[in-house]
Design a protein around this nucleic acid. Structure first.
Lengths: 216, 216
DNA sequence: TCTATATGTAATCATTGATTACATCCTTGA
DNA sequence: TCAAGGATGTAATCAATGATTACATATAGA
């Protein structure tokens, strides 16, 4: 059997001999899990360990349990999500709040549709206790606050028909979230072959909503 | 040990001795799984078997695998979902299409919020292959058709501002589905203590949407 | 009544999350 | 410098689950 070399590893290790310690296993496990999810596979601790070429018990040195790993994965995904949305908004020349809201919704949906598995992990609360990660909660809260600020601005500038701001905020979240989840949950039967069609429909839905709340 | 009586079971069985054959195990398994889900537990084949007081292998006489059981569960849940919505619509005195649409959305959300686990099984497509049950697909399709008909009627009666009916239909589905899933996925933090508040917000969101698409 | 079929049981397997005892490495401070 | 001790990985093991197979029993129809 090709058992592990027992020669003193004190000496500089040969190129192919992995060192006993991994380097940054935590990071590698998170990446492996993200990749697993992106491939549409179930995320299992053992498979992540396998991809990191490490024993099945090793991950538990970094995460007390599977949920903690998933929470870390969600944290990373949420970070990327937020970064991409803010980047998209940053590219925009300054416009009115409703135009910014439109850009926000589009960036949100584009990311959700291009990273469905990661969006699912972020949003579902099925993989770990809600609020178990402060970072995740913060990123999420700030994204929501960002979008709500746009609507508040719009209201202050008299751009909205209704005075019930809270209602508009919730409805807008429900609309965008619902569209993302419909895509995720397989409610867009065929047209998914090339995603352009779904993204165009996302745009149309957002425009319809904005037209509905905007002062005529 | 209180091992099973080996006396010839040919004779009429004593009251407490369960007969070898169960009666309607398939049905009982589905009900057990529905109940498990409603309790917020994971639905496992074995636990369903346990509740049916039957061996762990028995369910596989009725369902080729776990997914098939979940599909049957979804079928039953979808049947109830549709029945309740149609019942709610039946109670309504005949009104305009937008009023009917409003009643539809409310009935939809009320059921989704009162049966979150069942709604999840129906809608997610994570528990079994989409389209694996003809009945489920049919019930779902007809619900969608029902709601779309209301919007079509509204359009024909000149009640809508926009001519893009398809867009309105998708947006309305996204809105209602999104609200239901936000509740399901834990995006309504505190106010859930008594559901009345969420149901009122659901009502408000639907009204906002209808006001947005209706001809002023 | 006799037999084919449907339905349940017992035993077993592979996979997974998790824990425990042990091995190895790395850092720190005397 | 180097030994102590914490951090990190391994090996072995456990319990739960989905699934399969061989076998047992009940039921229906000729």
């Amino acid at each position: 059997m090709p058992a592990r070399q027992t020669s003193k590893p004190r000496a500089r290790r040969t190129p192919e001999a992995r060192p006993y310690h991994h380097g940054d296993l935590r990071r590698v496990l998170i990446d492996a899990a993200l990749q697993l999810a992106a491939e549409g596979a179930e995320v299992s601790v053992r498979e992540a360990a396998r991809r990191a070429a490490v024993s099945p018990g090793a991950p538990f040195r970094h995460f007390p349990n599977r949920d903690a790993l998933m929470a870390a994965v969600a944290e990373e995904a949420q970070r990327r999500f937020r970064a991409e949305i803010e980047a998209a908004l940053g590219e925009e020349p300054p416009k009115g709040p409703l135009e910014r809201f439109r850009a926000f919704g589009l960036a949100y949906l584009r990311w959700a549709m291009r990273n469905p598995a990661h969006f699912e992990i972020i949003s579902t609360g099925r993989y770990f206790a809600h609020g178990s990660s402060a970072d995740l909660t913060r990123d999420n809260t700030e994204l929501i606050a960002l979008s709500e600020r746009m609507l508040t601005d719009a209201a202050e500038q008299g751009l909205l028909r209704s005075a019930d701001l809270k209602r508009i905020q919730i409805a807008s979240r429900a609309l965008v979230y619902g569209f993302a989840r419909m895509n995720l949950d397989g409610h867009f039967p065929r047209w998914g072959i090339e995603d352009g069609q779904i993204e165009r429909m996302a745009e149309g839905v957002i425009d319809l909503f904005i037209a509905g709340i905007a002062q005529p």
